[in-house]
Structures are given as structure tokens and as C-alpha cells.
């Protein structure tokens, strides 16, 4: 069949067929890869659909010492983790400390540097991150100017309801940035 054709046109035929085969072969493989990548990128599509920050009742004023020593409390709220919805489950923790008779400050326990859980050290009256030794004052401010943490501990909005209930608007912020960027 191809014997009757000149070598050049034979070459061209071979090239065209080869190119066509490569296109088809590439095309049919792109479909499963594309489908897979679409599913893999799904978390980007679900931005903002995480736990919305609504105020959560965390403690009662009477559970907070009047001398301003912070106490750790779990934040119990409804959580949707991919397919599972749990009506009441710990979604994080906060340090609450009393600044007055009816005023309370709330700090997210997560270190803004790399996300470790900071400890309260009663002996020093400060918070220490066990990972990279960032030290924070009671009000959350960075103590050491050379601290690895880019910002102070994250303050959360607190509201006292019904005279004694401490409600916290719980949020997590992306670590490593000098400004607060809400995670959702």
C-alpha cells in the first residue's frame, strides 16, 4: 500500500498518524486526571463553609478566679467535619481571665507562630509556647522582642450574658502572619 508513495509523503503520513495517536492518547488520559484533580481541589471550593463563628457559652463567671489568673476552658460547639455533624463537641480551647467584676478577656490557646498549644505558667505569670519558646504576657502580648511569634496571642470577643454567662465568639486564625486572618 504505502510502497507506491514517495518517501516524503510516507514520512508525513507517519508523522500525522503519530501526532493523532499522541493527541488521542493524551486526551483520553487527561479525563481521569482532570476528574481526580477536580475532586482533590474540592477543599478550595468549600472555603467559608467551615464552622461559622457564632458566640459560644464557654463558662460561668463564678468559675473564673477574681485575681485575674487565667483558666483554660474547652469550647464546645456544633462541628461539621466533612460528612459528620456533631452537635456538641470540643472545637478548641480558650484562656479566660477576669479583668474586672463583669469583664473577661479571652485568648485562643493556639500560638500564632506555628499553631502549638500554649501553656500558662503560674510561676512566671505568662504563657509559654512549648514548641519554639515564644513567651506571652497575661494580656497576650509578646514579651521578648526576638520571639518567633509574629503577633500576640489572638484575642476573641467576649460577651457577658444574663449577668454571669461568659460567651466567646470563637475563631481560629492562620498562624505565621503578623496580622489576624480568620480561618474558615
Amino acid at each position: 500500500m504505502s510502497n507506491s508513495l514517495s518517501p516524503e509523503s510516507n514520512d508525513r503520513r507517519t508523522f500525522c498518524k503519530g501526532a493523532l495517536a499522541a493527541c488521542i492518547g493524551g486526551g483520553v488520559t487527561l479525563i481521569p486526571i482532570g476528574a481526580g484533580i477536580s475532586v482533590w481541589l474540592d477543599p478550595l471550593d468549600k472555603k467559608g463553609s467551615g464552622s461559622e463563628s457564632t458566640a459560644v457559652k464557654v463558662a460561668n463567671l463564678s468559675a473564673l478566679p477574681k485575681d485575674g489568673v487565667p483558666r483554660k476552658f474547652s469550647v464546645i460547639a456544633r462541628r461539621t467535619d466533612a460528612w459528620t455533624t456533631t452537635p456538641e463537641t470540643p472545637i478548641g480551647a480558650v484562656y479566660l481571665l477576669r479583668t474586672g467584676d463583669k469583664t473577661v478577656e479571652a485568648l485562643n490557646v493556639v500560638c500564632p507562630h506555628a499553631g502549638c498549644f500554649v501553656d500558662y505558667l503560674p510561676s512566671k505569670g505568662s504563657y509559654l509556647c512549648p514548641c519554639h519558646n515564644s513567651l506571652f504576657a497575661l494580656d497576650g502580648k509578646i514579651i521578648d522582642p526576638n520571639s518567633p511569634s509574629p503577633r500576640a496571642l489572638d484575642h476573641l470577643r467576649v460577651e457577658i450574658r444574663n449577668d454571669s454567662e461568659v460567651w466567646v465568639e470563637f475563631k481560629n486564625f492562620i498562624s505565621g502572619h503578623s496580622e489576624q486572618i480568620s480561618q474558615s
Binding site: 507517519t14 498518524k17 503519530g18 493523532l20 495517536a21 499522541a22 488521542i24 492518547g25 483520553v28
Partner: peptide, 12 residues
């Protein structure tokens, strides 16, 4: 290559 490859690709 190329004829059988092309046939295979079309079949796929």
C-alpha cells in the same frame, strides 16, 4: 508505530 498505535488510541 504509527498505524497500530493509532488504532489502539482510537479503540481507547
Amino acid at each position: 508505530f504509527p498505524d497500530q498505535v493509532l488504532k489502539d488510541a482510537v479503540a481507547c
